[in-house]
Simulated assay, not measured.
Amino acid sequence: MLVSAETGVMYAWGDDKKENPIECMLVKTEGDSEEWQPLGFNSIEGFTYIKGHEYYLSVKRTILANPPADGSDRTYSLIRILQDRLVTEPEIPVDEEITSEEDIEYQDLCPFEKYAISKGYIVDENGKIVYDDGYDSMLPSYSSARIWLEDVLDKEDPNWVKFESVPYMAIYSFVLSPFTDEIRLVRNESHGPMFKDVVPEDEFTHITQSMQSGEEVRYALILANVYKKGLQKVEFTIKKQ
């Protein structure tokens, strides 16, 4: 089985109107269709999928004699991972009509306060990145660091259950940079977008090499769902040490 580095969308049994898209893996199985097929993230027993990785797997497939009415007629379990390759994800194109923040359409009931970025960042001339909370906790390298999104939604909110559904999950981020008027769209991982996708290498180099000590810049992310409709706006700062 080949597993794509990119994800797709599937719909639950009974969702005939396709109102609630579910993010999923895209797979090709030997002997089946040559087209990519959707498969749920937890559908291969013993296998954990990481976005951005392309896998070639050896799996055991079991055909069920009496499948559940609302489920698949087959199950999969991992035998071994034959290949695991990190793939650089291409930049996601932004709709040509979106040239400013005002052009971003919001999902119904949005914006709302579900996500937060709890910390800012401090960088030095060597590219070292630490949080700005007073603790000398160095982050991973520039290429491995992440902008962490924290779910802070109050469970007493009357729409809490609704806001936990797919249309209110932050799948993408529109990036508003202090260095350009161009709006970029990046994919969020399970806990937020990668630092390098939000702060491109040329901007990071400018911060580390050209900014003065104590100087600070502010980035904004407009979190968006699978339809690329806005959910809320969050901000964070990067300060030169």
Results as ranks from 00 to 15, higher is better:
112 F>G: 02
113 E>M: 07
115 Y>E: 01
117 I>Q: 05
118 S>D: 13
118 S>W: 09
119 K>P: 00
119 K>N: 14
120 G>V: 02
124 D>F: 06
124 D>H: 07
125 E>Q: 15
126 N>R: 09
126 N>Q: 11
126 N>I: 00
126 N>H: 12
129 I>F: 05
130 V>H: 06
135 Y>C: 01
136 D>A: 15
136 D>W: 07
139 L>M: 15
140 P>K: 13
140 P>H: 07
141 S>C: 01
141 S>K: 06
142 Y>I: 00
143 S>N: 08
144 S>W: 00
145 A>E: 12
146 R>V: 12
148 W>Q: 10
148 W>I: 13
149 L>K: 08
151 D>R: 10
152 V>T: 13
152 V>R: 07
154 D>K: 11
156 E>T: 12
156 E>C: 05
158 P>Y: 08
158 P>H: 10
159 N>L: 14
159 N>H: 15
159 N>K: 11
160 W>S: 13
162 K>W: 05
163 F>T: 01
165 S>N: 12
165 S>H: 06
165 S>T: 15
165 S>G: 12
167 P>H: 08
168 Y>H: 09
168 Y>E: 02
169 M>P: 00
169 M>L: 13
169 M>W: 09
170 A>P: 01
171 I>M: 06
173 S>F: 06
173 S>R: 03
174 F>I: 01
174 F>Q: 02
175 V>M: 06
176 L>T: 03
176 L>I: 14
178 P>T: 02
178 P>Y: 00
178 P>V: 04
179 F>H: 02
179 F>S: 04
179 F>N: 04
181 D>Q: 14
184 R>G: 06
185 L>A: 11
185 L>D: 03
186 V>E: 11
187 R>S: 15
189 E>G: 15
189 E>L: 14
190 S>K: 12
190 S>C: 03
190 S>E: 14
192 G>S: 11
192 G>R: 04
194 M>G: 03
194 M>N: 09
194 M>L: 14
195 F>P: 07
196 K>M: 10
197 D>H: 12
197 D>M: 01
198 V>Q: 07
199 V>H: 02
199 V>Q: 03
200 P>K: 01
201 E>T: 06
202 D>H: 11
204 F>E: 04
205 T>N: 14
205 T>M: 08
206 H>Y: 14
207 I>N: 03
207 I>V: 14
208 T>H: 07
208 T>F: 11
211 M>D: 07
212 Q>Y: 10
212 Q>F: 08
